[in-house]
Amino acid sequence: MTIAYVRVPVANVWKDPDRPRENDGVFLERHPSVSNWLSRLDEEKDGRLGLVGRLETQLLLGEPVWVKEEINGWAHVFIPGQPHHEEQRGYPGWVPAHHLAYHPDFHHAWESHPFAIVTALKTGLLIDGAQRTVEIGWLTRLPFIGEANGDAIVMTPTGIPGRVPAEHVHVGRTLPVAAADRRIETARRFLGLPYLWGGTSVYGMDCSGFVYRVFEACGIRIPRDAHVQAAFGQRIERDSLEPADLVFFAYEQGKGRIHHVGMYVGDDHFIHAPRTGLPVQVQSLSQDAPYAEEFCFGRRYDGSEFPASIPLTADMVGEET
């Protein structure tokens, strides 16, 4: 396998190359626009709902992947930063190969430099020499190589330096572990954000992608999917829930397969990304259906369950694209 890095602001990871539909084509272009893609989905009745079974997850600019193979312009990848219950190499899926890049300078900087981690919801990345600014989102991390005139100088995956407003980033290899109140405050920043199946970006998230990114922003690494998130951490029963505990919901009145996750915020309420058509919101744990009937248990993560990062070492690395 080879190592590569995402070269677009947001990359969709598909179940297989045959899953994208005609209205997804705009997001397969070399320079995809998240906003244009979502606008096209919203123009169709089942545009967003139709992503179920098609879209697996998303990646942000600079995130690393293992590339197993490339077939007809598609890269079969594993995502080391998104733990998966069946695959030690990380979350599996398929990405258009031209959404990935490998440059030795970026690879070296990724392994050895501190990161400029975006803390603003959205900001601009000015790519040196290109005279264009690319919109990038929350939790995008790029190697930090210096600061000048109020900008953080970063390395982009194609090996070209870029600039991001220094006030919009945190510089460090990881983000500090945050207390429960900070996790809730972080989650509340996304009240009203539209639901997006497979989403993990500020343009839209699903239930598990939402808590996955919130915990990442608070220095705690957890699995990507709800049923796997429910298998780790400390199990917490209903009467012992504390703010920032994850709460899980299952079919068959809480006794069947886990299908949903949110974060407890106290006073018998939780915050979550419900489903297609409903935005991130706070709801009652005991009064609002179907959650009152489907609650099964909580989990408490303190930051010690998973390593903060996975070293990217391999016998081979990717070629520049």
Rank of each mutant, 00 (worst) to 15 (best):
L241V: 00
R188V: 00
R224K: 15
A148K: 13
L125M: 09
R132A: 10
R183D: 06
A217R: 12
G159I: 07
G124I: 02
E216Y: 12
E242K: 11
Q131T: 05
E216M: 13
Q131A: 14
I220Q: 11
P161H: 10
R213T: 15
H227T: 09
F144E: 02
A166Q: 00
E147D: 02
L241K: 04
V154N: 04
R132S: 10
E185C: 00
I127D: 13
T140I: 03
L246Q: 04
Y203I: 02
G146N: 08
I136T: 02
R188Q: 14
T119Q: 14
R213K: 15
R163L: 06
I160Q: 10
G159P: 13
V202G: 15
C207W: 01
D128V: 07
D128P: 04
A230F: 08
G199Q: 04
V154Y: 04
E242V: 02
G159N: 11
M155R: 14
D206W: 02
P157R: 03
L191Q: 04
E167K: 14
F210W: 05
G162Q: 01
V214N: 12
I220K: 04
T140Y: 12
P194A: 01
R163G: 05
I145F: 07
V171A: 13
T133C: 03
D225L: 14
E185T: 05
L126I: 08
G129C: 08
A148Y: 07
G198V: 01
P194E: 00
A187T: 01
T200V: 01
R221H: 15
G150V: 00
V202P: 13
V202L: 06
R221S: 14
T158Y: 08
R224H: 15
L139V: 07
A226W: 00
I222R: 13
K122Y: 11
D245A: 02
D206P: 13
G129W: 03
F232Q: 06
P243V: 01
V211C: 12
E216T: 13
A187D: 06
D245W: 01
A120C: 05
P165D: 11
G150K: 12
T156H: 13
L121E: 15
A230L: 07
F190A: 11
F248Q: 05
M205Q: 12
G150R: 11
E167F: 02
